[in-house]
């Protein structure tokens, strides 16, 4: 084979190997690490998978936050004003976590319908994606609550 052609072939070969590697790794990692968002209505209806890492979000229900006095365990419920989901979390909550605030929790739903969160995001966090919460509220709420959802979307503005 002509040396230049051979070289081109080597280069193309390398590129293909690199590309194949990248594609392989990507699909492998994507399959395991896509975290879908479910709103409380969907979770309450049993549409969310059990024991798969997902995200759940909504407003923290007024009066639902219960702290364990001996550890950092905390239980609360998030709601989209149509349904609500119990969430358990152990650790430090973000600064602006409060009742009536929009939050997104990352974790797994157990067989009893309790959402075990390993991460809770609220405003002031780089990872916070409140539009989903706003949208979830939009979908579930009517009338009065729609105004709340609009407000949630507005507070996104930092």
């Amino acid at each position: 084979m002509h040396p230049i052609r051979k070289k081109r072939l080597t280069i193309i070969g390398f590129l293909l190997i690199g590309l194949a590697l990248a594609v392989g790794l990507t699909t492998y990692a994507l399959r395991q690490n896509i975290n879908l968002f479910y709103d409380p209505t969907e979770i309450a209806a049993g549409n969310a998978p059990v024991d798969v890492r997902i995200r759940a979000g909504g407003m923290v229900e007024e009066g639902s936050v219960l702290r364990d006095t001996e550890s950092l365990k905390v239980n609360f419920r998030v709601t989209d004003f149509a349904a609500s989901v119990p969430i358990q979390y152990e650790g430090i909550l973000p600064d602006l976590f409060a009742e009536g605030q929009g939050v997104v929790a990352m974790g797994r739903l157990n067989a009893d319908g309790l959402f075990i969160a390993d991460q809770v995001l609220a405003k002031h966090d780089e990872n916070y994606m409140p539009p989903e919460v706003a949208e979830a509220l939009e979908r579930s709420s009517k009338g009065v609550h729609r105004a709340d959802a609009g407000k949630a979307a507005e507070t996104v503005d930092y």
Binding site: A22, L25, A29, Q32, I34, R55, E132
Partner: peptide
């Protein structure tokens, strides 16, 4: 087509080998 997020594990598993 849906809301999803791709978390740290994705980047860690793919970026570290490279």
């Amino acid at each position: 087509a849906g809301k999803l997020s791709i978390g740290e594990p994705f980047f860690n598993t793919t970026f570290s080998p490279l």
